[in-house]
Design a protein around this nucleic acid. Structure first.
Lengths: 351, 351
DNA sequence: CTGAAAGCGCTTACAG
DNA sequence: CTGAAAGCGCTTACAG
């Protein structure tokens, strides 16, 4: 391009990125010639290498991207991220972590994820709801790239945004217990990314690989203990994932057991699935059985679901804000957002 | 890194990307030293520049990213894109087109969008629901990057995936007309990205800047004409955007006028908003008034909405497939997916 | 199986 | 206000 226009490379560069450095006549000429010969402006690859930044943020999630567009809670979080004004200048890159059905094994999947994180052309990372130990997290830290964690895991020295999961879960459980429920069935999404689902055997609680799941279970456990109940004897069903199909299946498995006066669900998606299964079976809520959720999605309000609200959109916004701050040289911190029990029409004392 | 390990740059490169080119002993040594000195592997910027590809696809949308996480139809589309297996190796970059409230003017917004498209470190573009003329589209074509358009606009020589919008819209309108409706109010999302909303003045129909809106209005118009009605005399309310708040507002504006026996909405989000406003006002559907939508979101089925279904997830999947094909040197084509009228409980003959 | 060299396209001091 | 030169970090023929 510089050759054709018979100017130096620097002049072309200035024409695009530093208009004040050259005369406007020269700039116009360069731009006109560029137009004629079909030069579309500085190649991003060259710019990246030279300036050392990419103009993009990477978002890492467990599993595949499907989560981003499948799970309502995730969608709200992403909305918050997208709202951040400073991001008007940077792209949001959704990193392709392979789904379980594509990768041959969990190890291979993790290795792939780490490679992706390392290779991706981004200036900073948002890690959302990752399991405790994940090679991609190590890879990012080693690369020394700015990172902010959302929800899980908690990594020493890594800034993060989350909520008081244990307390929120405790609030929901206490609400049911204080209403007088003693036969409570529990629904959880996933305790570890190993594809297991169904009734959770006791030993599995010691091998939870996700901070949020661990905290929520911990909250349930302590609320139960405060009311003289042993959480270990409670039926807990694990969906094995986040989507509606798996949630419905888990709700059916739990409700097939029968005899519960309440369902304590660790997400709204699970609680809403339970509501649907109950309606299908002709059970009345809350007369026959109470149900609580967690998240307070808009759909929870519509369904009259008693749940624990967390500020999902704000969580995304704050995390993105914090990442911008870290990328500017700030240190970031651990930010905890409030939760609140929202009592609606899906809970009542047992008969 | 090469210096410390006392090997050549090439050896380091091979250690990471061509294990078969060096002995495994040497490779192990290189990797071990890298680990010790904290070298995280090849810098993506250097790789990009040298190989000429980025390992990412760019998604361009009108307005801001908020659309991606705000509009259910868009969310389903993205789910389809994310499902494409070949994408397990490439990232999906959401390009940050500034929202109306951030950019000072429409021109500035467009110029910014073009710049972003040019600068972004991606190998190909998916352009979704863009207005007819948009500088970012020109910029991408000039850059010569592979591109597939979803829905709008239709560009000569550019492969695209869409549906028969005109026919689908015609089906919905004809359904109402054949039931005997003559006082039909129409709801549309946006005819041009200029921030206008409210009752659409006649002249504005000649200045629609979005292909899909134009086709759907055309479908309504011809169905009306076939029944001896002048579409030009119909009340059409434009929401001015895609979210629920604007949709509710548009529905209120339309229904305030009164006297309609049916509401013909150009999207399900608008139709569902109309349903909510009608419920709020104590009107019975379909006894007092009929409502039709377009898209067939899962929420439409729940609400018993009569609508025109289009395969949203498949649209995304097909578009991503086609882009992969084009990036491999294929030519792509114009792909049209089927629509179908789904008759549910929100429509009946007028009283 | 390993190493020295070229060059991808840019930006930025620096000299004129 | 403009140009010549260096170097960002990599990969890939090529020579040994």
């Amino acid at each position: 391009m510089a050759q054709v226009a018979q100017v130096s490379q620097a002049t072309v560069s200035y024409a695009y990125t530093r208009p004040e450095k050259i005369s406007s006549a020269l700039r116009d000429r360069v731009l006109r010639i560029a137009d004629e010969i079909g030069y579309a402006g500085p190649n991003p690859g060259g710019q990246n290498l030279r300036t050392g930044h990419f103009g993009a943020l990477g978002l890492m999630m467990t599993d595949s991207l499907a989560l981003a567009f499948d799970d309502p809670a995730t969608t709200y979080l992403l909305r918050g991220i997208a709202e951040v004004g400073e991001l008007a200048e940077v792209a949001l890159t959704l990193l392709p972590f392979p789904a379980a059905d594509i990768a041959r094994s969990a190890d291979e999947r993790d290795a792939h994820a780490a490679r992706v994180a390392l290779r991706s052309a981004v200036d900073g990372f948002l890690a959302y709801a990752m399991p405790d130990r994940h090679p991609a997290l190590d890879a990012v830290r080693r690369r020394g790239a700015p990172m902010v964690v959302i929800d899980s895991p908690l990594l020493p020295g890594v800034p993060s945004v989350g909520i008081r999961d244990r307390r929120g879960a405790e609030q929901a459980a206490r609400h049911l217990l204080e209403l007088g429920h003693r036969r409570i069935g529990v629904l959880v999404d996933r305790l570890a990314p190993d594809g297991r689902r169904g009734v959770v055997p006791r030993g599995r609680f010691r091998r939870i690989r996700d901070r949020v799941a661990r905290e929520r279970i911990g909250g349930y456990r302590s609320a139960f203990a405060a009311h003289g109940l042993d959480f270990g004897r409670t039926t807990v069903v694990e969906a094995g994932g986040f989507n509606r199909a798996l949630s419905l299946r888990a709700a059916r498995t739990l409700l097939d057991e029968g005899g519960f006066t309440a369902v304590l669900a660790s997400t709204d998606v699970l609680a809403l699935a339970a509501l649907d299964v109950l309606a299908e079976r002709g059970a009345r809520v809350p007369e026959d059985i109470s149900v609580t959720g967690f998240d307070d999605l808009p759909a929870a309000a519509t369904a009259g679901l008693t749940t624990v609200s967390q500020p999902l959109v704000e969580k995304g916004r704050r995390a993105a804000d914090m990442l911008v701050e870290v990328m500017r040289g700030g240190t970031g911190k651990r930010l905890l957002l409030p939760t609140e029990l929202v009592s609606r029409d899906s809970t009542a004392p047992p008969r």
